[in-house]
Nucleic acid binder design. Structure first.
Lengths: 351, 351
DNA sequence: GGCCTTGACGGTAGCGCTACCAGCGGAAGG
DNA sequence: CCTTCCGCTGGTAGCGCTACCGTCAAGGCC
């Protein structure tokens, strides 16, 4: 047992005891009566070792319970089978879906995820990239196309596959999978205008930091401009996206701009919050006020009326990003290095 | 630039070029006119180096853009500032909250998270633990108290702080933060019985794998038994928890056991799905059918009627687990190594 | 049958860092 | 003024693994 309930301060120093008993390649090599290199090869590329030795080595590994030390391997080869995944937040339901998609591919290829959370801060992102690179990762998956100059430089200099995800656009550092949030915002704007709404408000979370929410707003404004319309107010909340935030936003909007006839929320959780707030207040949706969301989270299709929203293929973004990375790592060419996964307007009842 | 758009297969082999240019402690030492050890010390424990040298070294580091190689450092010291976090799934909204809590503490202490996803499989968990340990992590955070014997052995032998989270119980490997899911299930059962419900059904996701959902059911059954009642059917779905799954479960239950008067869902997302399905079908909640959930996800309080549920302090679990780990790593004793964070029954309108 | 190719195998030299310990100079004490 | 002690500093020896290349045996060829 490693604990003694009282919580003895098990020093972080001096793990030598731990080491003394450690099984190394050398032990395996001796046991199998071969050289260390043969053991190393047998484990990494079994085909390059004769069947007989391979078998002996496998037995020795099993007998001794040998687990290779990845630090040593990584140091020697600068390949670590490690992929940092850098996202702005986990509380926004969008990112777990993406990470799940990434994870489904990477785990199959024996690649470990290092998770980093930037809190939508480019400075934090830069710090994360720096430490992650000190792990000699085999590749990097990072959210968005906007980074500090130093972040871009470090990633480019690392000479490993880099996939920028979620947003699709020009001049990625290396590879890119995502969608145009401006186009998505415009599509929703055009749809709402086409439905006859005129005073369309927008609600986004912390838009000074969440660039993609801001782009959706830009798209909406483009659509309004093209239609020669003015639209309604745009609200940038000072807290992360959440159901409750959407409800509060509705209350605020109704106070400030009671003439609005539609609200486009930058995220479904807020939109559903808005929808439910309307129900509580007895406001007819979409009769009095139309509500639209973004992302196509599962429960947006379960509320009544169902939420009109834009479905983003989050799992696919993660999966494809990971696949591109894996392909590159296998030394194969990646057919398309800039992938626009698009989006789908879900016309439902709320707008 | 590292890309050439066509996707040239950048070989995984031969990163020597990369290496050649790498700035090492030696370069910094030369530049600052000191020995490598002094550089190493200046970076890890600045106080043990004279102010003059420290300053010179800091300048050299900045000038050269030195970033220490963590693999080499880890190999030499067997300390890596790395903490694997092992959870069953990211798609269950519960776990992102926990990871967020962990992350908020660990990032502050310059500890990296290695994320592992077991898909509720103990065999996958064992494989994950094995690879993670080969990284010489400084500690481990792992979900649940049930593991394979080998998993437990490996973790105990690693001689690092281990925190088992989410579930609270006897004989943890090392430290433990969570709550009793049996007690929580019983509490909800007692409440429902107290409210006069008699035919109480239960719906859980993949209960052969999700041990904690099964324990909530066990708690409910204990409450029913104590009250001398029989309850209703228990449904174990064959897919992960989701809103849609809850709606389908309601449909199935109404077909199979139309006399039920309450449904206790093992998760809020399913419960909300059930609630919304009832609304679509015009079934009065709680009049005809009461609905209860579990976890206290945010939107459970926004639907109408609001969902009666059990609030679990997910962020707190993550935060405290990380804090215990950090305390141990600092060589300080942890006051309580087994922490029951408890739960709160949220009596609302749906049951 | 001798020579050269081919492929499996192993020795050795690092990868970049830190633990260990020795050295050295200055402060304190006799 | 010399000794003792202490704290800063740096040389050296690994940490455990893999890249590189040399060795050696087997097989193919003329």
């Amino acid at each position: 047992m490693t604990t003694d309930n009282g919580g003895r301060p098990r020093a972080g120093r001096n793990r030598s005891r731990n080491r003394k008993n450690r099984v190394t390649v050398k032990d395996v090599a001796e046991r199998a009566g071969v050289g260390t290199m043969t053991v190393s090869r047998a484990l990494r590329s079994p085909d390059s070792v004769s069947a007989k030795l391979r078998e002996r080595i496998e037995m020795a590994v099993a007998d001794l319970g040998y687990v290779p030390n990845r630090l040593a391997g990584g140091l020697a080869s600068s390949r670590t089978r490690t992929v940092p995944v850098i996202i702005p937040s986990l509380s926004n339901a969008v990112f777990p879906d993406i990470v799940e998609g990434i994870s489904s591919v990477l785990q199959r290829h024996d690649l470990q995820i290092l998770l980093g959370n930037t809190q939508y801060s480019l400075a934090d992102e830069e710090a994360l990239v720096s430490t992650f690179l000190s792990w000699s990762p085999d590749g990097v998956i990072i959210t968005g196309l906007e980074h500090t100059e130093r972040t871009r430089r470090m990633l480019a200099a690392a000479d490993i596959p880099v996939v920028e995800i979620v947003e699709w656009g020009e001049a990625p550092i290396d590879m890119n999978v995502g969608l145009s949030h401006v186009a998505a915002g415009r599509t929703m704007g055009e749809y709402l205008i086409g439905q006859g709404y005129r005073r369309i408000a927008f609600v986004g979370p912390q838009m000074d930091r969440d660039v993609r929410a801001a782009k959706r707003l830009a798209g909406l404004r483009a659509a309004l401009a093209a239609a020669g319309q003015e639209g309604g107010p745009a609200l940038s909340l000072d807290r992360p996206s959440a159901v409750r935030a959407g409800g509060d936003a509705i209350s605020q909007l109704l106070g400030e701009a009671p003439d609005i006839d539609a609200v486009f929320f930058a995220n479904d959780d807020m939109a559903v919050g808005g929808l439910l707030e309307c129900q509580r207040r007895g406001i007819a949706v979409p009769g009095t006020l139309a509500i639209a969301g973004f992302n196509g989270l599962e429960f947006s299709g379960e509320v009544m009326p169902r939420l009109t929203t834009i479905l983003t293929p989050r799992h696919e973004i993660g999966r494809r990003a990971a696949e591109m990375l894996v392909t590159r790592l296998a030394g194969q060419p990646v057919a398309a290095t800039r992938v626009d996964v698009g989006f789908t307007l879900l016309r439902r009842e709320s707008a």
